[in-house]
Amino acid sequence: MSSNPTAVSTSITVEAPVERAFRVFTEDIASWWPSEHHIIGVPLATMVFEPKAGGAVYDVGEDGSRCQWARVVAYEPPTRVVFSWDISLQWQVETDPARASEVEVRFVPEGDTRTRVELEHRHLDRHGDGWEGLRDAVGSSGGWRLVLGQFADRMRKASVDRR
């Protein structure tokens, strides 16, 4: 667990060989990415993770539009991948790379059929002045107002199970 105040880290162990874990995480990202976490403004058709350093990661809308939200910084199958997080505090695409954070994922084989996946999302401070963007984000449609609202609804449903 990271004590770095500008990063979060987490890990999980999966029952799969390292090659499969790496491939599913990257090229098959559309199959597991939480469906409510997309910043593209239209219904989602798929997600693309270009498997190479310098590649793009983007959502594709049903109308064919594209929303790129990450750049592949390092692509080292089957053990390591690093990509930028080009999503601003206002929950929109961040076009300034200097204001993007970064996600590193390491795949550590634990035998032939088990893999430990370690993820660090770092340089969060690059996004700007803390998360004081909350105020602005809450005011913008589709920003925090939406995210918080969804979470709140979800929690309310979980605890009350309908009024």
Partner: peptide
């Protein structure tokens, strides 16, 4: 103002959920 801690909390939750899905 939530500060960077708020962002960490949010992303912590997000990645836990994402990795479980993965």
């Amino acid at each position: 103002p939530v500060g960077i801690e708020g962002m960490r909390e949010y992303l912590d939750r997000f990645w836990s959920r994402a990795l479980a899905s993965f």
